[in-house]
Deep mutational scan, measured.
Amino acid sequence: RQGFVPAAYVKKLDSGTGKELVLALYDYQEKSPREVTMKKGDILTLLNSTNKDWWKVEVN
């Protein structure tokens, strides 16, 4: 499932696989259909980080 999360809630990881991955630093509950819920410690695939406030991710 793809959607947006606050950029301040995730940290980029060095995956070494060519995929950009991020680590969820905090729990986040989606507040609109365009967002996704994540739990602290989740590893997500980063799809787009051009917006400084909201990053598009895919929940694996």
Rank of each mutant, 00 (worst) to 15 (best):
R1T: 07
R1E: 04
R1C: 08
R1M: 07
R1Y: 07
R1F: 06
R1I: 07
R1G: 05
R1D: 04
Q2F: 08
Q2I: 13
Q2K: 10
G3M: 06
G3L: 05
G3T: 02
G3N: 01
G3Y: 04
F4C: 11
F4E: 03
F4L: 09
V5F: 01
V5A: 03
V5W: 00
V5D: 01
V5T: 01
V5K: 01
V5S: 00
P6F: 05
P6A: 02
P6R: 04
P6H: 02
P6W: 04
P6D: 01
P6C: 06
P6T: 02
A7F: 03
A7M: 05
A7S: 13
A7P: 04
A7K: 07
A8I: 11
A8L: 11
A8W: 09
A8Q: 12
A8T: 11
Y9A: 10
Y9R: 05
Y9G: 05
Y9S: 08
Y9I: 06
Y9D: 02
Y9H: 06
Y9P: 00
V10L: 15
V10K: 00
V10N: 00
V10A: 03
V10P: 00
V10R: 01
V10G: 01
V10T: 04
K11V: 15
K11C: 15
K11N: 06
K11M: 15
K11Q: 13
K11I: 14
K11P: 01
K11S: 10
K11H: 09
K11E: 10
K12A: 07
K12T: 07
K12Y: 08
K12R: 14
L13G: 02
L13P: 02
L13E: 04
L13M: 10
L13S: 03
L13N: 02
L13T: 05
L13R: 03
L13W: 08
L13D: 03
D14N: 14
D14E: 13
D14P: 15
D14V: 13
D14L: 12
S15I: 12
S15T: 15
S15N: 14
S15M: 14
S15F: 11
S15K: 11
S15V: 13
S15D: 12
S15H: 12
G16L: 13
G16E: 12
G16W: 11
G16A: 14
T17E: 13
T17W: 12
T17Q: 14
T17K: 12
T17H: 14
T17D: 14
T17I: 12
T17G: 15
T17N: 15
G18F: 10
G18L: 10
G18M: 10
G18I: 10
G18V: 10
G18P: 09
G18K: 11
G18R: 10
G18T: 11
K19E: 11
K19N: 11
K19L: 13
K19I: 13
K19S: 10
E20M: 13
E20L: 14
E20K: 13
E20D: 13
E20Y: 11
E20Q: 15
E20H: 14
L21P: 01
L21W: 10
L21Q: 11
L21D: 03
L21H: 08
L21E: 08
L21K: 10
L21S: 07
L21F: 12
V22A: 10
V22P: 01
V22L: 09
V22N: 01
L23K: 08
L23C: 09
L23S: 04
L23W: 06
L23M: 14
L23V: 14
L23P: 00
A24K: 01
A24G: 03
A24D: 00
A24S: 05
A24E: 00
A24I: 02
A24R: 01
L25W: 03
L25D: 01
L25C: 07
L25T: 05
L25M: 09
L25K: 06
L25Q: 04
L25G: 02
L25P: 00
Y26T: 08
Y26D: 07
Y26C: 14
Y26V: 11
Y26P: 00
D27L: 02
D27I: 02
D27G: 06
D27E: 05
D27T: 06
D27S: 08
D27R: 03
Y28Q: 01
Y28K: 00
Y28R: 03
Y28G: 00
Y28A: 01
Y28L: 01
Y28N: 01
Y28W: 09
Q29E: 14
Q29I: 14
Q29A: 13
Q29H: 13
E30Q: 14
E30R: 14
E30V: 07
E30D: 05
K31L: 09
K31I: 06
K31R: 15
K31P: 04
S32R: 09
S32A: 08
S32C: 09
S32H: 12
S32D: 10
S32V: 04
S32E: 08
P33D: 12
P33T: 09
P33M: 09
P33Y: 09
P33A: 11
P33S: 11
P33V: 09
R34V: 11
R34I: 11
R34T: 12
R34F: 13
R34C: 15
R34W: 15
E35S: 07
E35K: 05
E35G: 10
E35P: 04
E35T: 08
E35N: 05
E35W: 04
E35V: 06
V36C: 08
V36D: 00
V36A: 06
V36L: 15
V36N: 02
T37M: 05
T37F: 05
T37W: 04
T37Q: 05
T37Y: 04
T37D: 04
T37K: 04
T37A: 07
T37I: 03
M38N: 00
M38W: 02
M38Q: 01
M38F: 09
M38G: 00
M38T: 03
M38D: 00
K39N: 08
K39T: 09
K39L: 08
K39R: 13
K39M: 09
K39S: 09
K39D: 04
K40T: 07
K40A: 13
K40L: 05
K40E: 07
K40C: 07
G41R: 02
G41P: 00
G41N: 06
G41M: 03
G41F: 05
G41K: 02
G41T: 02
D42V: 04
D42C: 06
D42E: 10
D42G: 04
D42M: 12
D42Q: 15
D42R: 03
D42T: 06
D42I: 04
I43A: 02
I43S: 03
I43R: 05
I43K: 05
I43N: 03
I43H: 04
L44E: 00
L44K: 01
L44P: 00
L44G: 05
L44R: 00
L44I: 06
T45E: 09
T45L: 15
T45N: 08
T45K: 12
L46A: 02
L46M: 03
L46D: 00
L47A: 02
L47V: 10
L47M: 07
L47P: 00
L47Y: 03
L47C: 06
N48P: 03
N48Y: 06
S49T: 10
S49Y: 08
S49W: 10
S49L: 04
S49G: 10
T50M: 11
T50F: 09
T50K: 11
T50G: 09
T50W: 08
T50R: 11
T50Q: 12
T50P: 03
N51E: 11
N51K: 06
N51Q: 09
N51R: 10
N51I: 06
N51D: 14
K52M: 11
K52Y: 08
K52N: 11
K52I: 11
K52F: 09
K52E: 10
K52A: 12
K52W: 07
K52Q: 11
K52H: 11
D53M: 15
D53A: 12
D53G: 08
D53V: 15
D53K: 15
D53Y: 15
W54S: 03
W54E: 04
W54L: 03
W54F: 06
W54Q: 02
W55V: 06
W55L: 04
W55K: 01
W55P: 01
W55G: 00
W55H: 02
W55I: 04
K56T: 07
K56I: 13
K56N: 06
K56P: 01
K56S: 07
K56C: 14
V57F: 01
V57R: 00
V57H: 00
V57D: 01
V57W: 00
E58Y: 06
E58N: 04
E58S: 08
E58W: 06
E58Q: 11
E58A: 10
E58M: 10
E58L: 08
V59S: 13
V59C: 10
V59D: 06
V59W: 08
V59K: 13
V59E: 09
N60V: 12
N60K: 12
N60C: 13
